[in-house]
Design a protein around this nucleic acid. Structure first.
Length: 899
DNA sequence: TCCCTGGAAGGAGTC
DNA sequence: TTGACTCCTTCCAGG
């Protein structure tokens, strides 16, 4: 389907703009394999009802290609002009259905998506410059100055939309699909005239695809702040963003706005009486698509609600087939339908099994063939990470706002978007077939609170979407969407929009409210795994992928058509029912490293801790086999439901010379374990004499104390002048760990030895707390050394975070727990692998607006950080780095790999 | 009546 | 291949 739509787009695009010549030839761009359909500015809102930026745009202009599911906006690449970012070349697509192969009508036609450029702050006007001053006809507050084609920007979640709403409107959605691709029939009628042919292809393609899940949208509500819409700052017309209502009304199927509670597509399920063979897919029997469901609510009247001025409606639906034409969605559990799916072309990725890099395999013919369906390919996480290494400035043109999957810093200069009150760690998301399960709540009661610091001039729009909480880049979650909650108890006005396929809830930050918003209007909707996984290009799997984060973003106008975009992500939220009830969750812990001798106290904070909860440390070998396991002694007296205090066990090999990465988990019984958390056992102290020329200082050799270094197994000594964490060496460890790299401090380094190299290299075993690393992730303590931009950043970032937290220094929150407080409340750092963590942002690439502190940070900055950009680094890269940097390490006598 | 919430049934998927 | 177990999705019921 995605293919079809892309084709559609391409066709229209060419027809209207004659882009053929400009479209990069197939395979051009070098990295064509990694290109997405999202080449188009992801910042483009796919909101139905948004008119193209140009009034003259012919009606034939198709709506943006359905964002590809599972895809992220291809990381824009630096354009020739400094500060300018250019989208990656578009991919080619083959007409004729998803098969991309010869099958399907249009069989061999290969179309190329246009290359699009989006810009960040650019000293010189970019090609699209002429459009810069064009009013924001989009009215969505995301003024766009790029040409229409960009309006078709796809977003990965478009798939959500593409796969979801795009494919099949929600039949039983509790909320109409505001992003339903197929919508109002009346509009469609007009559209058909313009794109009959395309539509037929779309339908054809759709019929060959498993249709995605309906993406429900909460009931609409009038835009609460239309007149004062902060977005108007960017353009005259707020119209582009059709109010939810319009979306809803445009969606043919589904409950009416007045019946938010979705009727179960097939009524209540009764397995005992369904008559459906047990082997039958529940989906087939219970959840068909439009048309399949008998008692579908009558289509809502066409556009009864007021559209925002300028809301073009029809444009959005160009090419959209009528709802009725949507083939019944398929489920992979259906054999027949499964067969119908273009498996042959589906990279193994379809179900999320595609190993990283698979699709990058440039295997000639095959690759070429795939190229025909190139836009279906999904860049590997590695590729993404690499592409984003270096990060970028959070300054954008108002016309080219960053896509949702672009990491952004939470703070830039004086601006900071902060989550004052974090949501609870658990929130049971609701399915489309269920009624709402309410808004996300905050741990202390109430709801999350988000505040923008450093700006209070005008009202601004705060955007919120559901993001991922895994170890990869923060991005819109494929299996969850934000769900707008309304009701008497909801005080915060919100507006639902769709940004490239991802539902975004928009609220207003008012100066009179100190630019703070109480997020009491945001629920979480769970999409069926099978639906999402069926999407073309979707690589994520839904099973056990139940952790999300609330992502908040705000674009602060800076004048001159520029905005600073900052983003904040909440702590991870477990959205499954069971997990929320039974599984223990570790949200933070301190410390995160300790001497191999253990004995230190480790404090875990989280939830679902039981009196008999166990904490088990484990170590796994490269092959994943368990190499060591030790249960820690839990101090029951100092533990409760949300806190576990335990004594770190002794590591089984105390003669290691390098930090050992281990993990621990909390167990409430068999199969009731928390996700593992990383922990490091550090070698006992090394005393080293500074040897400026040595690249291996501090490391023992196999033949005695190397370079004047000796291993110290003696009893604890008096504390050193500097605390471990005050020592740059500590910082190295700290950083590497904080960044989530399961890598030991990179002692052996090439190049000029960092200043911190002299002196203590490893953790002094002084006993007491001094032998333990301060929590990198849960930095309750202000970072000690001066100039450290992280200092005091109590809410740093989770372990496993590929992005370093480049956020400049900020004082601890008043609400932050005391120094030794077990759990930071607001800005708790979750050591959980939740990369892309709010504060983590993309960081600032060198020379890209990085805070001076960051740039000037000495010590570690000259080594590892300089040689390997942290941002976006992946585990693979980390492994590589580890292998590279430690390869020269001589194993000291006595050190043996844990058996 | 609607919304929210907790619980659980039953099938699918995984080990 | 089979059984046990876990997870997902839907349904039920009560406040």
């Amino acid at each position: 389907m995605g293919a079809a739509s892309c084709e559609d787009e391409e066709l229209e695009f060419k027809l209207v703009f004659g882009e053929e010549k400009e479209a990069p030839p197939l395979g051009t761009g070098g990295s064509g394999e990694e290109l997405d359909s999202e080449d188009a500015p992801p910042c483009c809102r796919l909101s139905l009802g948004e008119p193209p930026p140009y009034g003259a745009t012919p009606i034939g202009i198709p709506r943006p290609p359905p964002p590809r599911p599972g895809m992220h906006s291809p990381p824009p690449r630096p354009a020739p002009s400094p500060g300018t970012w250019e989208s990656q070349p578009a991919r080619s697509v083959r007409l004729g259905g998803p098969g991309g192969g010869a099958g399907g009508p249009g069989g061999g036609r290969v179309l190329e998506c246009p290359s699009i450029r989006i810009t960040s702050i650019s000293p010189t006007p970019d090609p699209p410059a002429p459009l810069e001053d064009a009013p924001d006809v989009w009215g969505d507050g995301s003024p766009r100055d790029y040409p229409p084609p960009e309006g078709f920007g796809g977003y990965r979640e478009a798939g959500a939309q593409g796969g979801g709403a795009f494919f099949s409107p929600s039949p039983g959605s509790s909320s109409l699909s505001s992003w339903s691709f197929f919508s109002d029939a009346s509009d469609e009628a007009a559209l058909y005239a313009a794109c009959d042919e395309v539509e037929s292809e779309l339908n054809e393609a759709a019929s060959r695809f498993g249709l995605g899940s309906p993406l429900p949208s909460p009931r609409a509500s009038p835009r609460p702040w239309t007149p004062e819409d902060p977005w108007s700052l960017y353009g005259p017309s707020p119209g582009g963003r059709a109010p939810e209502d319009s979306w809803l009304l445009l969606s043919a199927p589904g409950p009416t706005p007045t019946s938010p509670r979705p009727a179960s597509p097939c009524g209540k399920r009764r397995y005992s009486s369904s008559g459906t063979p047990s082997s039958a897919s529940p989906a087939l029997s219970r959840r068909g698509s439009l048309g399949e469901e008998g008692p579908e609510p009558p289509p809502p009247p066409p556009l009864p609600l007021t559209r925002d001025p300028g809301s073009p409606g029809p444009f959005d639906y160009v090419g959209a087939p009528p709802v009725e034409s949507i083939p019944q969605k398929t489920r992979r559990t259906s054999n027949e339908q499964a067969v119908a799916l273009p498996r042959s072309e589906e990279p193994a990725s379809c179900n999320g099994k595609l190993p990283s890099g698979t699709e990058e395999a440039p295997s000639g013919g095959l690759r070429k063939e795939v190229a025909g369906m190139d836009y279906l390919a999904v860049p590997s996480p590695l590729a993404w990470s690499k592409a984003r290494v270096g990060g970028h400035s959070p300054i954008f043109r108002t016309s080219a706002l960053p896509p949702l999957d672009w990491p952004l810093p939470s703070q830039y200069e004086q601006l900071e978007l902060r989550i004052e009150v974090q949501p609870r760690a658990h929130h049971r998301a609701h399915y489309e077939t269920e009624g709402s399960r309410g808004a996300v709540k905050a741990a202390p009661g109430g709801h999350p609170v988000v505040k923008l610091l450093g700006y209070s001039e005008k009202p601004l729009t705060l955007q919120m979407f559901i993001g991922t909480a895994d170890e990869r880049n923060l991005r819109p979650h494929a299996f969850y969407q934000v769900h707008r909650i309304t009701g008497k108890m909801v005080a915060t006005a919100s507006y639902e929009a769709v940004v490239s396929g991802t539902k975004v809830l928009e609220m207003t930050l008012l100066p009179e409210n100190n630019m703070a918003a109480n997020i009491d209007c945001a629920g979480i909707l769970k999409l069926r795994n099978s639906d999402i996984e069926l999407r073309k290009g979707e690589t994520d799997i839904g099973r056990k992928n139940t952790r999300v984060r609330l992502v908040f973003r705000v674009h602060v106008p800076q004048g001159s058509g520029k905005v600073i975009s900052v983003q904040a992500a909440s702590v991870p939220i477990e959205c499954s029912q069971r997990s929320a009830q039974e599984l223990p969750q570790v949200e933070a812990y301190s410390p995160s490293a300790c001497s191999v001798r253990g004995g230190e106290e480790l404090v875990l904070t989280g939830s679902n801790f039981l009196p008999d909860s166990k904490v088990v440390f484990i170590e796994r070998g490269p092959d994943g086999k368990l190499q060591w396991e030790e249960e820690a002694v839990v101090n029951r007296l100092q533990s409760n439901e949300v806190t576990l205090t335990l004594t770190i066990p002794e590591y089984n090999n105390k003669r290691v010379s390098r930090p050992v990465q281990v993990y621990f988990y909390v167990s409430n019984g068999r199969r009731k374990r928390s996700p593992t958390q990383s922990f490091k056992f550090l070698p006992v102290i090394f005393k080293e004499e500074p040897l400026p020329d040595s690249s291996l200082r501090g490391f023992p050799s196999t033949s005695g104390p190397p370079f004047g270094t000796e291993m110290d197994f003696s009893p604890p000594r008096p504390p050193y002048s500097s605390y471990p964490h005050e020592d740059p060496a500590y910082e190295t460890s700290y950083l590497s760990e904080a960044f989530g790299y399961s890598t030991p401090p990179l002692y052996p380094q090439t190049g000029p030895p960092p200043s911190y190299r002299s002196g203590l290299q490893m953790f002094p075993e002084t006993g007491g707390a001094t032998s333990c690393a301060r929590p990198p992730a849960i930095s309750f303590l202000p970072r000690p050394f001066p100039g450290d931009p992280y200092r005091g950043q109590s809410s740093s970032f989770p372990l496993g975070l590929p992005f370093p937290p480049p956020a400049p220094f900020r004082p601890p929150l008043p609400s932050s727990p005391p120094l030794e407080g077990p759990f930071p409340s607001q800005s708790t750092v979750h050591p959980l692998p939740a990369e892309g963590y709010n504060e983590v942002g993309p960081g600032y690439g060198p020379g890209e607006g990085a805070p001076e502190q960051e740039k000037s940070r000495g010590g570690y900055g000259s080594g590892f950080r300089d040689s390997v950009p942290i941002q976006g680094i992946t585990l693979e890269e980390v492994s590589e780095i580890i292998g590279r940097d430690l390869s020269g390490f001589p194993s000291p006598p006595g050190e043996e790999p844990p058996a």
